[in-house]
Simulated scan of single mutants.
Amino acid sequence: MTTTHHASPAHRPVGPARGPVPHAALPSALGAVLILGALALLAWPARAALFAGVAGGTAASSLAPLAGLVAGKGLLALVAITAGLVLLIWFRDRPRFGLLAAAGAGTVAAYVTSEAVKLLVTEERPCRAIDVATVLACPAPGDWSWPSNHSTIAGALAMSCLLAAPRLWPVAVPLALAVAGARVAAGVHYVHDVASGLALGVLVTCVVALTAHAGAQRFTRRSTSRPSPGARRTRGR
């Protein structure tokens, strides 16, 4: 008579928790980066005319208060949405929280990259180079224009939300675009500044988040596949 021995639950190998698989977002992110990059390249030769038309037209219209509000405070709405998502995922989906944390690191990396590029390129603000009435006051000298920090952070936060909760795209994407567009309309950036900033935020956040997530998954698989000391002693008897 053959006796079948079943391993006790304590000795069964425990597989890694199945966290989110965000790689499906990569093609969309790369597509967005290519489109935004192409827009920046196309807008650069006509940057002065585009700025004068958009910023000057907005300053003389009834949309001026709205443009100023979105340009100055719109980013806070994306921050609030991301913070709410962090709390929700922390209580309801811990594996996905790790992905959102990695995207947060990507957002910081995108901002640091944006600041570094600004210091290297030192492009003057359009409100200082072009004589056009603007909604917002021109930033102080030395606060360079390309790429737009606001747009970089907006793109990074939107990408973070989409990696963790893709269904938020009807809110996150238009809001990020509105923040970027308002920076031009309010008179503090060229079109190529904000398009480049959005592309930079999306790209850096996506790459950092996916790389960190993949590394965490590999570490988890290796850790959980190793038998515990008690299990090794049992097999050695």
Rank of each mutant, 00 (worst) to 15 (best):
R96N: 15
Q217T: 05
V108C: 01
A116L: 15
T4F: 13
R222L: 07
R183L: 13
S148Y: 12
Y111F: 14
H23A: 07
L177Q: 04
L120T: 14
G15S: 11
G57V: 08
G84C: 14
T234H: 07
S8W: 09
V202K: 02
G236V: 07
L30G: 03
D193L: 14
P139Y: 12
P22M: 10
F91P: 00
R218H: 09
A80R: 00
P9Q: 10
V79S: 05
Y111L: 15
R94Q: 13
R96L: 01
V208I: 15
E124W: 00
A49P: 00
A60H: 14
V70F: 11
C138R: 13
Y190R: 07
A64M: 11
A182P: 08
L50K: 10
C127Q: 11
G68M: 13
V135M: 10
P45K: 09
T220P: 00
L75T: 07
P126L: 12
R233T: 08
D93N: 10
S223C: 04
S225K: 11
L210K: 04
I89A: 03
T82A: 12
Y190G: 02
L78S: 02
I81V: 15
Y111S: 08
A212P: 03
G142Y: 12
A105M: 08
W144G: 08
P20Y: 01
G201I: 14
C161R: 01
L88R: 08
T134Q: 07
P166N: 04
P139V: 12
D131N: 13
V117D: 05
F51I: 12
